[in-house]
Amino acid sequence: MPAMVTVLLLTGCIADGAGSQVSSSSPSLSVQEAPASNAPLETTQASTKIPVYWIGRSKDEVYLYREFRDIDGDDNPVTTALRIMMAEKPLDHDFFTPWQQPSNLATSISGKNVITVDISRDAFNSNLDAVMAQRAVQQLVYTATAAASSSGLINSGQQIQVVILVDGHPDYMAFGQVKLGQPMARDASLVAPLWIIDPQEDVTLPPGAVKFNGRSTDSSKPIAWQILSDNGKGEKTGLLNGQAKPTGEPGQYGVFTFGATLKAGKYELRVSQVDATGNVIDSSTDTRLFSVG
């Protein structure tokens, strides 16, 4: 796939979803005035999977989390990723999307690394407060830039911005809260401190050595992990635990990896960042349900 595409356009998906209500009542959340632009992009990869971002809660915070989804290699990856984000459910039961399936969706990429997304107004049929609306808009920005970067359609080493149009027009108020139409960058403050990459939710792995990996926003913080055994009745028992050190420079994004030997059964994996005093940072926790057998 070429490293740069000047213009890429694809339209079409039919909406039939009803509106829903999602709100945030946590006093610790705030609307960010100026989005940051130092959130690193996904690297180019030859794969039939595409990154899609979702919204999830960790303690009292609300963050953006990433999953990889299967796609047809012939489809426009940016449009496909956004369609999945708006019309499908995340694999992880802890995540959600406030978007509705749009009747029209088109994307294009300029030679200046600007992605334009044109969607119909029926995609906004959810009642959100300002905090959640901001996260929903950033969910779209993250998904569009991730899909373009991982597919090799843009140069991930340069600044990338997203312009959102609604029915071809700028200045629409997304969810009645966020004004669209101007170039928007990723807001690094809204992405989750860490998340599990593998295994994905509800997968079944062969017995024996199981490898786990994930990503953290701060490589200087160790990762505390715990594997719990699930008896299938909602009761979970701690089985194994340990710590992993993310790769990368301190304060920068990094990945972490660890392994365990497991027999057939149902399990939950929990990971969290650890602060300088050795305590787990609860607001950084991610969990994943999986089976072995």
Rank of each mutant, 00 (worst) to 15 (best):
187 D>T: 02
187 D>P: 02
188 A>V: 11
188 A>Q: 14
189 S>Q: 05
189 S>A: 10
189 S>W: 04
189 S>I: 00
189 S>G: 07
189 S>N: 08
190 L>D: 04
190 L>T: 08
191 V>S: 13
191 V>I: 13
191 V>A: 15
192 A>Y: 10
192 A>C: 12
192 A>S: 15
193 P>M: 01
193 P>C: 01
193 P>A: 02
193 P>Q: 01
193 P>Y: 05
193 P>T: 03
194 L>T: 01
194 L>W: 00
195 W>I: 02
195 W>E: 05
195 W>H: 15
196 I>E: 00
196 I>H: 06
196 I>T: 04
196 I>N: 04
197 I>Q: 13
197 I>S: 11
197 I>R: 10
198 D>H: 11
198 D>K: 11
198 D>Y: 09
199 P>Y: 02
199 P>W: 00
200 Q>C: 05
200 Q>M: 10
201 E>N: 14
201 E>A: 15
202 D>C: 03
202 D>V: 04
202 D>P: 01
202 D>W: 13
202 D>N: 15
202 D>Q: 13
202 D>F: 11
203 V>G: 12
203 V>P: 08
203 V>Y: 11
204 T>Q: 05
205 L>V: 08
205 L>A: 07
206 P>Y: 04
206 P>H: 05
206 P>K: 04
207 P>V: 10
207 P>E: 10
207 P>A: 10
207 P>Q: 07
207 P>H: 03
208 G>Q: 02
208 G>D: 05
209 A>N: 13
209 A>M: 12
209 A>W: 05
209 A>D: 14
210 V>D: 05
210 V>P: 10
211 K>L: 06
211 K>T: 08
211 K>S: 14
211 K>W: 07
211 K>Y: 11
212 F>N: 08
212 F>M: 06
213 N>E: 12
213 N>S: 11
214 G>E: 03
214 G>Q: 02
214 G>V: 03
214 G>I: 04
215 R>G: 06
216 S>D: 11
216 S>A: 14
216 S>G: 07
217 T>K: 14
217 T>H: 12
218 D>Q: 04
219 S>M: 01
219 S>I: 00
219 S>A: 13
220 S>D: 12
221 K>M: 04
221 K>T: 05
221 K>L: 10
221 K>G: 01
221 K>R: 15
222 P>K: 01
222 P>A: 07
223 I>N: 07
223 I>W: 10
224 A>W: 01
224 A>N: 10
224 A>S: 14
225 W>R: 00
225 W>V: 00
226 Q>P: 09
227 I>F: 12
228 L>S: 15
228 L>G: 12
228 L>M: 15
228 L>R: 13
229 S>K: 15
229 S>P: 02
229 S>R: 14
229 S>E: 05
229 S>D: 01
230 D>E: 07
230 D>M: 00
230 D>T: 02
231 N>D: 15
231 N>A: 10
231 N>T: 08
232 G>K: 03
232 G>L: 01
233 K>Q: 15
234 G>A: 07
235 E>D: 13
235 E>P: 04
235 E>I: 12
237 T>P: 02
238 G>M: 00
238 G>K: 00
238 G>Q: 00
239 L>C: 05
239 L>M: 08
239 L>Y: 11
239 L>H: 07
240 L>N: 02
240 L>S: 07
240 L>Y: 11
240 L>D: 03
240 L>Q: 14
241 N>F: 08
241 N>L: 03
241 N>Q: 12
241 N>P: 06
241 N>D: 13
